[in-house]
Design a protein around this nucleic acid. Sequence first.
DNA 1: TAGGGCTTGATATGTTATAACATCCAGCTT
DNA 2: AAGCTGGATGTTATAACATATCAAGCCCTA
Lengths: 159, 159
Amino acid sequence: MPAIGFEHHDHAHCVRSTLSKAEAHCADTGLRLTPVRRRALEILLAEHRALGAYDLLEVLASEGLGTQPPVAYRALDFLVKAGFAHKIEALNAYIACAHLGADHTPAFLICRGCNSVAETDTSPAQGRLGDAARAAGFVIERTVVEAEGLCPDCQKDAA
Amino acid sequence: MPAIGFEHHDHAHCVRSTLSKAEAHCADTGLRLTPVRRRALEILLAEHRALGAYDLLEVLASEGLGTQPPVAYRALDFLVKAGFAHKIEALNAYIACAHLGADHTPAFLICRGCNSVAETDTSPAQGRLGDAARAAGFVIERTVVEAEGLCPDCQKDAA
DNA sequence: TAGGGCTTGATATGTTATAACATCCAGCTT
DNA sequence: AAGCTGGATGTTATAACATATCAAGCCCTA
Ligand SMILES: [Zn+2]
Ligand SMILES: [Zn+2]
Ligand SMILES: [Zn+2]
Ligand SMILES: [Zn+2]
């Protein structure tokens, strides 16, 4: 699975494709992609970067979709639980899933220069983390894997 | 490097050894392990679990070492920058380094049952995260690797 | 048409983190 | 000794992130 976020790409396709996958998944499972939830996903999808809950709320509020924090947090909670979005723990912020539909364990590359975030994936059971967990008798239920650094564009800018 | 935190061990040795390594490192580099900083490290070292900044502040306050948030955040900032403590991003909390002195990239196993945290390590450049970063042309400066789940004791309790 | 379950509205509050500015103090300079 | 300097601390205020709670509405279905 490639890292999606830094490379130039047909982003309009990203957006359309993710939205239609989300709709299909909701239709299949009975989840309800209500107007606020759908719009929240669109807003997160606009760019490959993470948005704070209050940034999201600001946009929703400007469109008359709700003005109080619970509006944003409920929508985000739904999107995260449905697998349509992920929380970036290092930023306390949220990003639309770039691999919607694929069964995956997300991992993120976070650029400190331009704040863009690329999503890739990992295998928790493999690698040194899995080894350590097995050795300690620890059962992994969820992993947080995030790398901070500089994307290719920002490396050029720095030089 | 083993995962330190779940196994029964001579914890008093943990504490003494970490404190003396921290003192030595400060003596070597000119960093100042002031009373508040030293006491903050001791408080974090008391258990292999993460403490919120305000939990730490509460203890410091009860000992007359300061009552306002910046007291705790400054001490934590020093400890983290010096490598004496790490922030657990998934918990917004802080833990003393269990491998002080060793050159390492920390990774954590976080038990949702008893809140204990074991520290192990990873190699950012290796593994799938490193592969993805290289493929994307991304330069990693810092990684966050955390696993949530159940420690051996809490698995027994659950069964 | 009544009930149950999910969704939304609204108010308040809890939790985590930093900005900004004043003061202190040790070590060095003149 | 007086003055400077840089790091550390004191103090106040606020920013930023997140949740508890209860009321009201909506949708399905029995
Ligand atoms: Zn895209
Ligand atoms: Zn960048
Ligand atoms: Zn120990
Ligand atoms: Zn446990």
